[in-house]
């Protein structure tokens, strides 16, 4: 197990690991900063509506706020299940 050896070996210096971890998480959080708090609820309610028509799971709905040149775009994506071909037309 790699983590067990972490402290023993002359691994990559831990400060380097720390910096990389911080860069990833802070970049991610800055993107989301200022995004409205209601996103999770919005996502849940959209899911409820979609579920009246199709079988989708929680992970099939994605809600994201993207920023482009001073304006914000609310992007919704719903992965619908594959429709089975109708046997009789």
């Amino acid at each position: 197990m790699r983590w067990l050896n972490y402290f023993r070996s002359s691994n990559k210096r831990s400060a380097q690991t720390a910096k990389e971890r911080l860069q990833v998480i802070i970049a991610h959080e800055r993107q989301g900063a200022g995004a409205p708090d209601y996103l999770p609820r919005l996502q849940r309610e959209i899911l409820e509506v979609v579920r009246r028509y199709a079988e989708v799971s929680e992970n099939d709905v994605k809600v994201e706020v993207e920023r482009e040149d001073g304006y914000e775009v609310l992007a919704l994506s719903v992965a619908l299940p594959e429709e089975r071909p109708h046997a009789v037309r």
Binding site: W3, L4, Y6, F7, R8, S14, A15, T17, A18, R21
Partner: peptide, 14 residues
């Protein structure tokens, strides 16, 4: 070093 790496320090036996 442990927090740098994201490993709880109690797992460091040395």
């Amino acid at each position: 070093q442990a927090s740098n790496a994201g490993v709880p320090v109690v797992l460091d036996e040395v």
